[in-house]
């Protein structure tokens, strides 16, 4: 029923796993690609970028008047 070679059907010996009857296979580091994680975190990245742009350029810069420098202050430290 499970076709891919690295899906090993095992029973965990550890007592903690007794509550996990649906543990069906064991994946090692090499054969596991967290593709779902990559997708989720990609979505998160997009949300962050879009909301940042919205917050900075629409909400913040649109919320004037704003404190401005008498002369242009150039921040160049660090």
């Amino acid at each position: 029923m499970v076709s891919r070679p690295y899906y090993l059907l095992i029973r965990m010996s550890s007592g903690t796993e007794q509550r996990e009857p649906d543990h069906v296979r064991t994946l090692g580091h090499e054969e596991y690609d967290p593709i779902g994680t990559a997708i989720l975190i990609g979505i998160y990245f997009l949300i962050l970028v879009l909301l940042w742009i919205f917050m900075y350029f629409v909400e913040f810069l649109g919320n004037g008047p704003t404190v401005v420098g008498m002369a242009l202050t150039v921040v160049g430290l660090a």
């Binding site: 996990e20 543990h23 967290p34 593709i35 997708i39 975190i41």
Partner: peptide, 25 residues
């Protein structure tokens, strides 16, 4: 941390038989 923790959860889900890009959730 966000990546590592979610990847660890996904690892668990896949060991429990989860499939697909997001179906493992």
């Amino acid at each position: 941390t966000a990546f590592t923790v979610v990847a660890s959860m996904e690892h668990g889900a896949r060991q429990r038989g989860g499939e697909g890009y997001l179906g493992w959730l």
